[in-house]
């Protein structure tokens, strides 16, 4: 678990991060969201001591990070950045093995671990192991970057706009994969982005930063409730706020428990209301069938119900 306690960072007399107090529970994804220059990276970099706070403290698993020397601390925390930063003169396998090698693992253990990780991030080990970074596409390079961060199996992952430089399709693919990996490994992830859709797609909790201050925090649905504060409205855009809110609500909650007529378009029960709206628009239908799954008994989703909570 990460805990920021009244953390401030000043450059000159300007507080770039200003008295931020924030908890990131074990096993959750916390997204730091804010405009460019709002202090997201600075806040994140205080966790692995790439930046030292001017005041306040950062705790990881209850221990002040300054109690551990920076190198040891960083080897226990995965770190992924937008520019990836693969070492250009090392092959993919060596890049992934960076931290295990620093930790002095045996060669055989490293080799198995590298193949395991490449497979985990969706790169066939046989094809990619011996490539140099310049032989990878942007998406493949960032997959390697993710594998490198996961190499020594750190419980904590810091990700600074890791997908921002990728095209929208690749970005969505990697977001989905990150969620899968998160579900499989249960890592605690602190994720920085300025992309609101990405934040909603990934976050268990969102922390909104504005000019270095924590302006709002909560689960996506809480954050976008009616009457939310000005910073959130600015960030998500007044006119599209309602639309983003739909993305935070599951469709099954407002489906009426009645048997759907057979010819209605089918919406998966775990879909969001935004997806429901999209399906209605594309199918030209004002009703959708939601088939039963798990505890949900199945039902029908009405256009009228959809527009009401928004």
């Amino acid at each position: 678990m990460i805990r920021f306690e009244g953390v401030t960072r000043r450059y000159g007399d300007r507080a770039v991060v200003d008295r931020v107090t924030l908890d990131v529970p074990d096993g959750s994804i916390c997204v730091l969201l804010g405009e460019s220059g709002s202090g997201k990276s600075t806040l994140m970099r205080m966790v692995n001591r790439l930046v030292e706070p001017s005041a306040g403290r950062v705790l990881v698993n209850g221990r002040d990070v300054t109690a551990t020397d920076p190198e040891t601390l960083r080897r226990g925390i995965g770190y992924v950045i937008q520019s990836v930063g693969l070492f250009p003169h090392w092959r993919v396998a060596e890049n992934v093995a960076t931290v295990p090698r620093l930790l002095g693992w045996e060669a055989a253990r490293i080799a198995t671990r590298v193949d395991e990780l490449l497979a985990l991030v969706g790169l066939e080990p046989g094809r990619f192991r011996d490539r140099f970074p310049h032989e990878l596409s942007g998406g493949q390079a960032q997959r390697v970057g993710l594998a490198r961060a996961l190499a020594a199996d750190p419980p904590l992952l810091l990700m600074d706009e890791p997908f921002s430089a990728l095209d929208p399709g690749t970005r969505r693919g990697l977001q989905a994969e990150l969620r899968t990996i998160h579900a499989e490994t249960g890592k605690t992830i602190l994720f920085v982005t300025h992309d609101v859709e990405e934040a909603l797609a990934l976050a268990d909790t969102v922390a909104v930063l504005e000019e270095g201050r924590l302006a709002a925090r909560g689960r996506p649905a809480e954050l976008l409730e009616r009457g939310t504060g000005a910073p959130v409205r600015r960030l998500f855009g007044e006119e599209s706020l309602a639309f983003h809110r739909l993305a935070t609500l599951p469709a099954s909650t407002i489906a009426r428990p009645e048997d759907a007529a057979g010819d209605l378009p089918i919406l998966p029960a775990e879909a969001s209301l935004k997806q429901a709206l999209m399906l209605m628009l594309s199918e030209g239908s004002d009703r959708l069938a939601v088939p039963p799954t798990g505890e949900f008994p199945g039902g029908t989703l009405y256009w009228a119900d959809l527009v009401r909570p928004a």
């Binding site: 080897r75 950045i81 990836v84 930063g85 693969l86």
Partner: peptide
């Protein structure tokens, strides 16, 4: 950016120089 990645992985300054 490369140096940031290297430091973030826990490489020492001497290691960064050498590697």
């Amino acid at each position: 950016a490369l140096l940031d990645a290297a430091r973030g992985q826990g490489m020492t300054e001497a290691g960064i120089l050498r590697r």
